[in-house]
Nucleic acid binder design. Structure first.
Lengths: 242, 242
DNA sequence: CGAGCGTTTGAAATCGGTCAACAGCAGTGG
DNA sequence: CCACTGCTGTTGACCGATTTCAAACGCTCG
């Protein structure tokens, strides 16, 4: 894990292209300039390295600058549950604020870089900038409602529906970031997908094969091409059977 | 749904017995006095009534004063996922802050009463009182990490483990509130439990029967008596408690 | 006291899990 | 450059936990 002090202006929030996803959303130009002073350091992670680990003391949250992370919690018997996959512009570490210790581990799925946002500084600045305060609350709240959608998926959907929803969700998030929502590379393994969706890797693999046979998508290892988004939406339960 | 203006001092946060669970945690006596002005109204709900519904505009969050709520989201095809059961002192409506519309519906499982906490007032007061700000962040963060535990349950545990964890979690929360953690009444139906835990009501019922046969607990309709908490912990897959 | 839920129980069906074998690709080193 | 090795992903056969279907029981409340 590689600490990088932020020196030149090109690295600041005010010029970061992710401003429309991250902490500065809704802030005036002057306010974003103040946020620049909040982030003085970043961390560079190689694939497989961890940004933080379950149990670590927390004094910052992290804004993902590029790359992909998974956050996951581990049970005493070794079973693991992936709670989220995170794309650039998203903030991680939010679940640890409650007791100032990380509740999960964040692992890089590819080479990544994260901005360090010290909690104490964020909180004091949020007291001065109502728009920053509101944005932070929105971010926390959206994390909650995303988790609720995930709960709905795990609790009420069949494996096929869960996987379809997962793909559609990824596609949407890539689209929003200016990447293709039709064709993209999965950064995570079948095992990661299985953990996230509460199913075994064999089931993930079989479902991908089934989707391929049905002409819904093409998949070659981690490269996915969505061929029939309408059909995928139907599988995802927009109008379900049973 | 019955609006109740708060008149006498006995109804204020500074004298509320739930202070140790709710918004005032960590606040000085003077600060709690200020929080008193935040909550000027409460809502009384009869069993089955809703505090808010998915899609409603949000301008407040709610502190549960007494009673029990379930929060749930509904899919277009009618399937429902219960995302949480809420006991006195807990704040609900947090998932709606993100886009100022409720993402879920909150329904009373028994006669209940909730304090209205206007978001705008809460945010402006949080800018003045760092301890209130921190407590609100803790509450949001804990909601996230609870949801993550719930995800772990739905994604990685077998039905038996999920139910055992659910019972232990309820027991702990009742204990914290000064009620018995050994014997309590479930406020929710088998259907609610099934939805929350991602299983059918028949499975819930069979598991209760199995636990009873194993001498782990006694259950008569909604009255539960835990006989062997150690055994229940083992079923739940925990060496110690969380 | 009877109607209607909510709950329990049984039997059959099935989705997804488990076990096992193999295929494909990547990295290593001779 | 290829053989070797290890890791990831695919596929098949079988199994079993949970669902589904069905029926009966027993509270609760009007």
């Amino acid at each position: 894990m590689n600490h990088i002090p932020i020196a030149d202006a090109s690295n600041k929030c005010s010029t970061c292209l992710l401003g429309s996803f991250c902490l500065p959303v809704g802030l005036s130009i002057e306010d974003v300039a103040k946020v620049d002073t909040l982030v003085t350091e970043r961390l560079r992670l190689k694939k497989g390295e961890t940004l933080y680990r379950q149990g670590d003391a927390l004094n910052a949250v992290y804004g993902l600058r590029f790359g992909t992370l998974k956050t996951h919690i581990t049970l005493s018997d070794g079973r693991e549950q992936i709670t989220g996959f995170h794309l650039p512009g998203e903030i991680v570490g939010l679940d640890g604020i409650g007791d100032l210790h990380q509740q999960s581990t964040a692992t890089a799925l590819e080479d990544s870089e994260a901005c360090i946002i010290p909690m104490a500084d964020l909180e004091s600045m949020a007291r001065l900038l109502p728009s920053l305060q509101q944005q932070f609350h929105r971010i926390l709240s959206r994390e909650i409602s995303q988790d609720h959608s995930h709960l709905l998926s795990l609790g009420s959907m069949r494996a096929e529906e869960r996987l379809a929803n997962f793909l559609l969700n990824l596609a949407e998030r890539y689209s929003l970031r200016g990447y293709s929502g039709q064709e993209f590379n999965l950064r995570m393994s079948r095992e990661d997908i299985g953990s996230y969706l509460g199913m075994q890797i064999e089931t993930v693999s079989r479902l991908f094969s089934r989707f391929t046979e049905a002409g819904v998508l093409q998949i070659k290892l981690r490269n996915v091409k969505l061929l029939d988004v309408t059909a995928l939406n139907e599988i995802a339960g927009q109008k379900s059977q049973r």
